[in-house]
Amino acid sequence: MAKDNKSQWDGFSLKPRREMPEGLWVKCPGCEKTIYKKKAVENRDVCPECDYHFRIGAADRIRYLADEGSFEQIHTEMVSADPLDFHFRGTTYKDRAAAAETRAAGKEAILVGKAFIKGRGVSLAVMDFNYLGGSMGAVVGEKLCAAIDKAIEEKLPLIVVSASGGARMHEGVVSLGQMAKTSAALARLDDAGGLFISILTDPTTGGVTASFAMLGDVIIAEPKALIGFAGPRTILETIKVELPEGFQRAEFLLEHGFVDMIVHRKDMRSEIARLIDYTC
């Protein structure tokens, strides 16, 4: 790809890059300083002042992670068949999904495919928090399993970037079953001797944490990412005790031994490449 195309590449070629929201300035939730938006974007959506990692969609994530133009997406057109015919408060799951599609990078909460990271071929799956909170339904499970199968078949390392609120309520037990399904597929990958690097970004909670996200051979977290089983609000409601400072943040998990390393967004590519070199 020619050099001048660089800024137009959006991680995959189907959709044009999403326009930035209005306003040239954004307030950083980390240091509460007002920063020039362009500067933050140039810095891979990281606050130049305090290293706060903004939440980003799947397209940006792939752009920051994969080699330029290398992401070949599969199963782009797979969508949910709404197994429960779910409706609530006068709206339906179908409506919500259609509305979410306009915000998200793809047609579901995960994009999967083959990519190169610093020249190393990988099977890449990236979750998209913009699509119904990155929740895991039947499609996410199915697509992730396709990525795992690809990793097994072509002996590629599997890289999964999680950003999810957990299982998708709108699909009921079917989404709960996806936890078992993806974990079983990962057991196959493990048996086949494949490498699985799980990257946890802000936020990774619920059924996603309690299944594939925590099963990585190497688990990497982004700084200050919220990672946990129950969400902070659920815990508060259950035990009604003030939660300690930094609770369920990446650093908290590192301290308690549940992630291998915390890696800055700008170092993610090289860190993954190095890990792949060690193991493959």
């Binding site: 309690a210 925590m214 946990g228 129950a230």
Partner: peptide
């Protein structure tokens, strides 16, 4: 959470 509820369940599933 400190002792890894999510990780414990995930490993069981696998």
């Amino acid at each position: 959470e400190e002792r890894g509820q999510a990780q414990a369940i995930a490993v069981n599933l696998m």
